[in-house]
Design a protein around this nucleic acid. Structure first.
Lengths: 170, 170
DNA sequence: GGTATATTGTACCGATCGTTCTGACGCCCA
DNA sequence: TGGGCGTCAGAACGATCGGTACAATATACC
């Protein structure tokens, strides 16, 4: 998982994936007969599962929207190692080789936005407003990950997360 | 220029750089004797020159801060083709192969933040506030580029730019 | 223990990678 | 005209890429 998001699709060689997974190349090909694409798809599957469990589900659970946002924030802090990790979805947007994953990347971002918007609507925010604010939240998350890593300053990510409750308040 | 930012460092092959520049490989090596790194450094030089001329200088020019922000926005719309292009600085943050450019990426982001903060301070915003807001502006720019491209929706980038004047108002 | 299946190691493949080298060509100037 | 220099094409290089094939090893079950 970590290799693809930090190296991108093109930078993630089979040798690196092998090393990171602890499996030899032949084992990797055995488990993923379609090769590298299978492996990256599995990484995406894993991301989706994680986001479903730790971000989307809490956002869709009953309870005050502020609590839900807070839970999302907690998950993101862990998942992005407080701003020190890149976002796999963004990494997969670099280069033509990873183009086949674009529909899934798109879908995941959409689901994320929709989950945030859902929480906002539950709190009384009208549909259009909820959508725009949810989108803005993802913009801040993604942008702050880029900047935090570029400036070696994870606090930037943490500040962005801290700004979300107010942005997403009813 | 376009190849490295859209493909990233690892995805930008010499064949692609050759094609994009209209120079054969031997010509490329003639002009850039240190190889791929020279070429990417030249791309970064060009970015720096462009940002200096079209973004940093307008932000540092005399005049109302709002006007300066507006001019930056105009430049960014053109430079990022209204949200359809990736940011080179972000692309160079993916993968270990491009690590040698990290200091320059960092420096450019810093200068950008500082240029925005400078405009804010000229408008009477206290130093600490100016810094945080400038950083937030870059977060929005970078994040909206990631999301606009991932969702095939350049309007997201445009919306983020449109939000900057208010964020950066005195 | 024997058999079937899963897992893994290793060698090899063709393609592409970034790079180097050499020679050809064109232009300019004395 | 000849020489120097810049530019470029094309071949070749060693390394790495993603992938394949086959044999060896490990595991599970009867």
């Amino acid at each position: 998982m970590s290799v693809v998001r930090s190296q991108g699709y093109d930078g993630a060689s089979l040798a690196q994936l092998s090393k990171a997974s602890g499996l030899g190349k032949s084992s990797l090909y055995h488990h993923f007969p379609e090769g590298k694409d299978d492996m990256v798809a599995a990484v995406l599957d894993h991301l989706e599962t994680t986001l479903d469990a730790t971000v989307f589900a809490p956002l869709r659970a009953p309870g005050p929207p502020a609590t839900r946002i807070k839970r999302m924030n907690g998950s993101l802090l862990v998942f992005y190692r407080e701003g020190r990790e890149a976002c796999l979805l963004a990494s997969l947007g670099i280069g033509d080789s990873s183009r086949r994953f674009h529909p899934r990347v798109k879908q995941l971002f959409r689901r994320w936005i929709e989950a945030i918007a859902h929480a906002l609507r539950d709190g009384g925010v009208p549909r259009g407003q909820a959508q725009l604010r949810a989108e803005e939240a993802i913009v801040r998350i993604e942008g702050s990950l880029v900047l935090a890593r570029s400036l070696d300053d994870p606090a930037i990510f943490q500040r962005a997360l801290k700004s979300l409750p107010e942005l997403l308040a009813s």
